[in-house]
Design a protein around this nucleic acid. Structure first.
Lengths: 237, 237
DNA sequence: CAGTGGTCTAGACCACTAC
DNA sequence: TAGTGGTCTAGACCACTGT
């Protein structure tokens, strides 16, 4: 494991277990670096992670402090830093995926543009309903280029596409761009999410990339408004 | 200006102006470091920023590449990295703020907890309607501790509270935690946002912190669903 | 003033990729 | 194997804070 990761994990554990008093600054970077037998840069990098998680804040010339409200807050909802797919995110819940549509087609202009592919590259067009503990949770409409994501079949779609990508195809997911908006329910939403005419849906539009920079997924996830909150931590630089 | 910021800006400009071919890796870090007369670490840090913006991706052992779709995408909507307040965000638009409520009160348990203050510390309780180019845009319900954010008055509320905080009070905003959800419109929403019974709203709940780690704002911004999209870039580490 | 974090350097070695 | 990015070091100086 990388040194800065190990140190970061250890410091996170200490803070959660209140090893350090939340009323005082934690030890300064040089002392911690000595304790962990690393350079100050590496110590700094380890603490940077906790700062970006909203667990610590720094005051130049003064010290590094614990953000009290962070200690007992465990992030239960989907965050900004995660990009896992439902299966891993709600690993302890019973998840069911039913396939509403599973086609191969030529991409529209919009889809081709988002996936950075030519219009003659076939794309999978998948619509799935995901249920959590038997309750409808989200409808996902997904486009994936067939040349990149191969061997997709109904068995995979009933389970986890993300696991297929990372474990079977040995690809590495690098990140995504997302847009989040509220919308009125479509007929499809009402039917499958079992929502009323005046129940809003929360839509997450996403383009996800591999570590090669190639977009492998363009998707719209439409969530029941009463079952999904998108969380985000923003730290100004 | 910091060296890595300058370099980062220059590289962003070059990429946008297609100084580098998008089909090839950009020059390696050591060459760029020589060109910019900096160490490789500093060059790396400058490029890190562009990677986190979704403009570049790296392939270890291979090089650093431009994400094509990023070149012409200008971020028009609110992003994850911004925390500015409307006034600065839409600086070229005509923004009008009307005050629906402006009170001082003792905080509820929930508000006291979010702002990390005692229940005997008075908080401002503000409701504003923000209009952009004459059209209703968002209703903001905001709680701010009166001991931290002082000298708040109607004049400030008609303009920019963020400017008041940064310029008049000389405080530094460090970041925020946000939750985004869809909701049905309340009576207040319908009245001021001029939306129908079945028009959803997009709610952004936010706790914003100063660089001292003290929360200074707990707010709910309720947006018309047809006028607001929340954007987010997520890069896996 | 002493002590803190912010930036930057000039190197080193390692892990991975393409050839 | 050569070239790339990823990590890490041991220092340096600077900017800012509180006393």
């Amino acid at each position: 494991m990388r040194k800065y990761e190990y140190i970061s994990n250890e410091m996170r554990r200490r803070i959660r277990e209140e090893y350090y008093s939340a009323d005082q600054p934690i030890p300064d970077e040089l002392s911690l670096a000595k304790e962990f037998d690393c350079s100050r840069m590496t110590m700094k990098r380890a603490l940077d992670i906790l700062v970006s998680e909203g667990m610590l804040y720094r005051k130049r010339g003064h010290g590094t402090f614990i953000i009290k409200s962070s200690i007992h807050d465990l992030p239960v909802s989907v965050t900004d830093r995660e990009n896992l797919g439902l299966t891993k995110l709600l690993a302890n819940k019973q998840i069911e995926s039913s396939i509403i549509q599973f086609d191969v087609e030529f991409p529209s202009n919009e889809v081709a543009k988002r996936l950075s592919i030519e219009k003659n590259v076939p794309v999978y067009h998948i619509i799935r309903l995901r249920k959590v503990e038997g309750e409808p949770y989200v409808i996902e409409k997904t486009y994936m280029p067939s040349n990149l994501i191969s061997e997709l079949n109904e068995e995979v779609l009933h389970g986890s596409v993300y696991r297929h990508i990372t474990e079977t195809l040995k690809l590495t997911i690098a990140g995504s761009h997302r847009k989040i908006r509220a919308d009125k329910p479509t007929e499809l939403d009402r039917k499958y999410l079992e929502c009323a005419y005046d129940d809003p849906v929360l839509e997450v539009e996403q383009v996800a990339f591999l570590n090669t920079g190639e977009p492998f997924e363009y998707s719209f996830a439409r969530h029941r408004y009463d079952k999904f909150v998108f969380s985000s931590v923003h730290i100004r630089k």
